[in-house]
Design a protein around this nucleic acid. Structure first.
Lengths: 226, 226
DNA sequence: CAGCTTCGTGAACGCTGCGTGACATGAAGC
DNA sequence: GCTTCATGTCACGCAGCGTTCACGAAGCTG
């Protein structure tokens, strides 16, 4: 079995012990670069990220892991009780979470269940909104079955927007969530990409992205209920 | 929003309280038959099954729920620590589990994440007063479901007023709280925005904002009755 | 009612924010 | 080397919006 990726390095003793006891091979890594260098031939079996130790580094790593080749390795987040509220805006960064400190038995059950359900392929590989379809595996977008020729950044931006339909994002939020936290650049960059996206969506569907003056941009219609 | 199915009936007080606090509607049912009879028009939004109380009945219910129309309503299992080992053979009966006793915040986070990954999205953050609804995520306002086309300042002003119903604010207070502390401008600016708000609320609802002469403005009814 | 204050109304001004086109840079491919 | 394309930045122009002003109506006080 391929090893699990553990963050940070060194791994917390309780976590290391629990994994050893449950019989899962693992390897601790301390940075995104280290994750690249140490990646096994067939990819990681999964990842367990301790966000209770280094929250910022953890979420950055999650984002990096999510961005690489699909299919994703299942990602389990360890969080302190005080961090639960932060999860709401980062639903896309993990597949399951576990409160820290944890019972070894609970961790084991979560890993087993995670493997079970990702083995069955329940992870959505398509993002759909109306006529628009994003294929997360082939990195392609299509509208009414007609493929759109999007660049990397256009695709990433559209993917982020389409997975949060109705919600308004400021340029700063988009820069940090799509471009990355450490990005320093003019906020108007977002405008230009929005413009190019609208152009490629075509006149008919350009209104999928609406401008909220003095605030930012919104994809799709608002939700007034469930 | 459709209610969550809770098993057993009556629902454990801690669970009922946590769901009420988080704002999820729910309905306790005590048997598979009851689940059929009470099922809402559009199906259950999801199910929370307390397996720590009645393990056999719980798993039977899970199995019954799984057998009906796809796609499944997401199913969250509450289990005692001693039951963790039993889960391994029943992976297909639930989508997520939570240790009992639980922290309300953890339960809330699990429900939100479950809804997110099964594609139902999270509940929008709303500010409501009578027929008026403000959606804080989409930056939109609606009255009786009919969307209002508000500008940025109008929205901010209405949001501030609607989150403090019944309270009277002077123009100076409004300027500092809505416009910003360092704002230097004529107090009459407030009047104009109030006027435009009243106009957009429509004749019927213009009285939502009342003038308190020599003091300022108030949203909604006074706390002393009429 | 007179005098004053306070508020509503309409209109006009001026600035801000956004769309747009053009261009610079750098990486990828030939 | 050159070419092509993805990406980021800038300057310009316009429309929308916030602000202000003037005038009249409405309220309070005596």
């Amino acid at each position: 079995m391929e090893p699990l990726l553990i963050y940070p390095d060194p791994a917390p003793p309780a976590l290391a012990q629990a994994l050893d006891l449950a019989g899962y091979p693992w390897k601790a890594i301390g940075s995104t670069d280290a994750a690249d260098r140490s990646e096994p031939e067939d990819g990681w079996a999964g990842a367990i990220v301790c966000a209770d130790i280094d929250a910022d580094g953890s979420f950055a790593l999650c984002r990096a892991l999510r961005k690489r080749d699909l299919p994703f390795a299942p990602l389990l987040l360890l969080v302190a009780g005080s961090q639960l509220a932060e999860l709401e805006l980062r639903e896309d960064l993990f597949d399951d979470f576990c409160l820290s400190p944890f019972q070894p038995k609970e961790l084991e059950a979560r890993i087993a269940h995670l493997f079970w359900r990702t083995g069955r392929g329940t992870r959505p590989e398509l993002v759909e909104y109306g006529d628009l379809v994003l294929n997360l595996e082939t990195y392609q977008a299509a509208i009414n079955g007609k493929p759109l020729d999007l660049t990397y950044m256009e695709y990433e931006l559209l993917k982020f927007l389409a997975t949060h339909p109705g919600k308004v994002f400021t340029r700063e939020t988009l820069l940090s969530r799509v471009w990355g936290y450490e990005y320093y650049g003019g906020a108007r960059t977002v405008d230009v990409h929005i413009r190019r996206l609208r152009a490629k969506l075509g006149e008919e569907h350009a209104n999928l992205i609406s401008t909220v003056r003095s605030v930012g941009y919104r994809f799709g219609q608002s939700r007034w209920g469930l």
